[in-house]
Simulated scan of single mutants.
Amino acid sequence: MSELSFLPFAQARRRAAETVVVDSLLPGASLTLAHWRGAPTPVALCDDTSAGSVLRALRQTGAIPAAARYVTANHFDIDGFIGVWSLLNPEQARQHEELLHLVATLGDFRELDWSHPLATTALKLACWLNAKEQELFYPPFGAPVLRRREDEASAEKFAWFLPAFGAVLENPNAEAATWAPAYERVEQAFVVVQSPQTQLHRYPEIGLLVVHTLEPLPYYALFGPTAGYDMVLSCYAGQRYEFEYKYTTWIDLESRPTRPRLPLHALAASLNAAETAPHRWTFEAVTDTGPLLRLAGKTLSKVQRYADPDQRPIHASTISPEAVEQEVVQFFRQRYAHIEPLKDWTWEQIRAAGAAVATLA
């Protein structure tokens, strides 16, 4: 493969035929390596993460078109960044392939297998990326607040991180002052998840994991046990709840079939009928990257919804944890009984599946 260089997305639109696009869509691109729903990623290169598709391409001779000169992405996040960086640093990426895949998975799905020998290193790298992004730039989904387009503003993040990451990958501990506060916060939360303070109720037949614990936790700890599940109901002390569709149901997951996201109108209506708190149960559309069902006070911004649960207000309900769990489980058991898990759902199929079960009582 020829040596590639990074090209900001706005410029890449004019050089699409010479550009590999990562974790994004670019009409006319020489190659797409993205797990986005419907992305034209070659079947042999499909992976749960976009970075994983890049790493597969680096293993296969001739996978990167000879005409490719550039690589781009239309946003900055950990998965996309790892993919872009790997294409620019293929030898180093091959040497650290397993670690990079773990970092990308943690960044997008918030899943981390703490028994993996590289788990702590992956967490250090993810925490460093997040901390530096927060220190030097705007937060994820924060570009509109600055009255900027993400595909343009994110180029500044790439310009800073691309030359800096390789040294941190080789020696994460040299940057401990940066990643340690977030790392220790997650590490302490993971101890809580593993302790008797936390109970996990698993419903694999509907892809739901229910977490009962005392206080809201950072996602990297909260979602650690959720691999293989696509929905999480978090139940905190004081009758505080959040239900979330994981990002695994927004993209085309390669490793296993999934169930389609369903509109939550009927579930919210049922909870609201039983609720006597001053707040109402609200939810986002199925096309949101991570729809939340929760008691709404002041409307959360996308930045707040993407941030960790312990960084946003979660209001007390008057419904018991047992009743909320039963309501959620019953809702999905009834509706998913009519739907088989599949790979490569289209948004049209997802909407149709939701419409087909919308009238169920």
Rank of each mutant, 00 (worst) to 15 (best):
K343P: 01
E275P: 11
G354R: 11
D151V: 05
W36H: 11
W85Y: 02
P260G: 12
S317Q: 09
A155H: 11
Q60D: 00
A93Y: 14
D310S: 00
A337I: 11
L102E: 15
P291S: 12
P40E: 00
E242G: 01
L342F: 07
A39M: 01
A221K: 05
A352R: 14
C127S: 11
F190R: 06
T121E: 15
M1Q: 07
L233C: 08
W179V: 09
Y219S: 02
F161A: 13
A73Y: 13
G107H: 13
P8V: 11
E242M: 04
E133W: 02
C127R: 13
A307Y: 08
L26H: 13
I206F: 11
A51F: 06
A67L: 05
P216G: 02
R148E: 15
Y247S: 06
L222H: 05
A352T: 12
A274N: 10
C127D: 00
W179A: 09
P140Y: 04
G28Q: 03
R335A: 13
Q326S: 06
Q188A: 09
Q194D: 15
W128I: 04
L217F: 08
Y70N: 02
P117K: 13
L209E: 07
L4D: 05
R305A: 09
P27F: 03
Q311Y: 12
T299S: 04
T282K: 07
A126H: 12
P216H: 01
N89F: 07
E133S: 02
A353K: 13
L271D: 01
S255H: 06
T276S: 13
P163L: 02
Y241K: 05
P321T: 07
D77R: 03
Q326A: 11
W345F: 11
W179P: 07
